[in-house]
């Protein structure tokens, strides 16, 4: 009874007499016999052929096959399309020539893209694009913050993990860190897409979203982002963001003790004098800062 077809042969009465005798002596025999007997008691629903045929004829009169000849054409076409896609994808993987440009802490960098657009990267940021196809599709990926002066031409797309920005020749600033996305448009027109919401910004407009909420619109009063001129400014943002920006711009470590990181801050700090920056940021918030060493600062409530 160890073979995997034994019971199959038993039911077909295809066992040798020895096999049969042995099986009928075993404990399993009765159990299997019971099952088979019970299955024989099951009935099946009735299929009425005459009625079915009558219905079938009625059905055939109105039946229309959904575009039968087209299906065949489409299939052949689909196969070739699939083959082309596979080949193209393979070529793309083989020849994809990604180029990544990044900045460290306390560093900004100006990059001239192949299409003559200019990107200014803020500290601790990076852009990635495909050298071979960039001139055609003008798509790049951004981590962090950067200012774009886009040359006139076809659509220019900035992909970030928090949403995509598409433009036609313009100047704009994108901030995409953690969950937050903020776009300032300084010239021309920008389209911002986040999940399902789409916002079109004209010059002097900005939009932001921190995480789940949809994109909020606001006015931009400046002509260039402040960080290009060596300052970071904030309008009603949690103090935690200010601390992060300080860390990025000065490459320092800031330890917060009992500070409420959700308190809102409005103001700015410069990028050239750390002491001044700490003073302008924390004095008005009633926070004391002490240097543990050159690169580590500790904050405490006064």
């Amino acid at each position: 009874m160890n073979e995997d077809d034994f019971l199959g042969r038993w039911l077909a009465d295809d066992l040798s007499s020895e096999e049969k005798d042995m099986f009928e002596d075993s404990d399993d025999y009765l159990a299997y016999k019971d099952i088979v007997k019970a299955v024989d008691r099951f009935d099946r629903p009735v299929f009425d052929i005459d009625k079915g045929l009558k219905n079938q004829k009625e059905f055939n009169k109105t039946y229309k096959e959904p575009n039968a000849p087209k299906v065949i054409k489409l299939r052949t076409w689909l196969y070739s399309a699939a083959a082309v896609v596979v080949v193209l994808f393979g070529l793309r993987v083989m020849f994809f020539d990604a180029s990544e440009i990044s900045t460290d802490m306390a560093q900004t960098r100006i990059i001239n893209l192949p299409d003559n657009s200019i990107v200014t990267l803020n500290a601790d940021s990076a852009i990635t694009y495909d050298k071979d196809t960039f001139e055609e599709d003008r798509v790049l990926t951004l981590k962090g913050e950067a200012f774009f002066d886009v040359a006139k031409g076809s659509k220019f797309t900035v992909q970030t993990k928090n949403g995509n920005i598409a433009v036609l020749g313009t100047e704009f600033d994108v901030y995409a860190r953690d969950k937050k996305l903020e776009v300032h448009c300084f010239e021309g027109k920008v389209q911002v897409t986040k999940d399902k919401s789409v916002v079109v910004l004209t010059a002097g407009k900005g939009t932001k979203s921190s995480g789940q909420e949809s994109l909020l619109l606001f006015d931009v009063t400046r002509l260039k982002p402040d960080w290009l001129n060596g300052t970071s400014s904030f309008d009603q943002v949690p103090i935690s963001e200010v601390i992060q920006e300080l860390q990025r711009q000065y490459n320092v470590k800031i330890n917060t003790q009992d500070i409420d990181l959700n308190r809102l801050f409005t103001g700015f700090f410069g990028h050239d004098d750390l002491k001044k920056a700490l003073k302008t940021s924390f004095e008005p918030m009633n926070i004391r800062y002490t240097f543990k060493n050159k690169k580590t600062i500790e904050l405490q409530n006064k």
């Binding site: 073979e3 077809d5 042969r9």
Partner: peptide, 14 residues
């Protein structure tokens, strides 16, 4: 294959 499926069906019912 039919024999095997019959066998497996019975074993599984049991």
């Amino acid at each position: 294959a039919v024999e095997k499926r019959m066998h497996l069906a019975l074993v599984s019912l049991r």
